[in-house]
Amino acid sequence: MKTQEELTEIVRDHFSDMGEIATLYVQVYESSLESLVGGVIFEDGRHYTFVYENEDLVYE
């Protein structure tokens, strides 16, 4: 089982391919040991929310 830090790094690596990240945040109250819920804001102003669970990243 991966730690929350490892899950965060996986998500950061994925989004870094889309541009320069200004902020990546995790909603700790919605996340667990198996899933990571949060959002990412890019330097150009784009903002996505995401759920990473079971090695699957869903964002909008």
Rank of each mutant, 00 (worst) to 15 (best):
V26Q: 02
N54D: 08
E53P: 01
H47W: 11
G38N: 00
D44M: 02
E9R: 14
T49Y: 07
V28I: 13
Y29T: 06
V11M: 05
F42P: 00
D17P: 13
G39L: 11
V58E: 07
F42H: 00
E60N: 13
Y48C: 03
S16P: 02
T8V: 10
L7A: 04
I21S: 01
F15N: 01
T8I: 11
V40K: 00
E5K: 09
T3E: 04
R46L: 05
F42A: 00
G39M: 10
F50D: 00
A22P: 01
D56A: 15
Y52C: 04
V51F: 09
Y25N: 03
E34R: 08
N54T: 05
F15K: 01
G19L: 02
V11D: 01
T23K: 11
F15V: 02
S31R: 08
T8R: 09
I10L: 11
E9F: 11
V28H: 13
D56N: 15
E53Y: 13
T23S: 09
Y25G: 01
T8C: 09
F42D: 00
E5P: 06
H47C: 07
Y52P: 00
S31M: 11
G38C: 03
E43D: 10
T8K: 08
K2N: 05
R46P: 03
V40H: 00
T49E: 04
V28N: 10
G38H: 01
V51H: 12
E43W: 13
I41T: 06
T23R: 11
L33V: 12
G39F: 14
E20F: 11
E6I: 07
T8D: 03
E30C: 12
M18K: 07
Y25S: 04
R46V: 05
T3F: 04
F42W: 03
S35L: 14
H47L: 05
R46H: 06
Y59N: 02
L7M: 08
H14V: 12
F50V: 01
F50P: 00
E34K: 09
L57I: 10
E60V: 14
E43L: 15
G45M: 04
V37A: 08
L7E: 01
S35P: 04
L33Q: 13
V26Y: 05
V58P: 01
Q27G: 08
G45D: 03
Y52S: 02
E60I: 15
L7V: 06
T23C: 12
V40I: 08
V26T: 06
L24E: 00
N54S: 09
I10F: 10
D44Q: 02
L33R: 15
L33Y: 11
L33G: 11
H14M: 15
D44A: 02
D44R: 02
L24P: 00
V26R: 02
F15Q: 00
V26G: 03
T23Y: 14
T3C: 06
V11W: 02
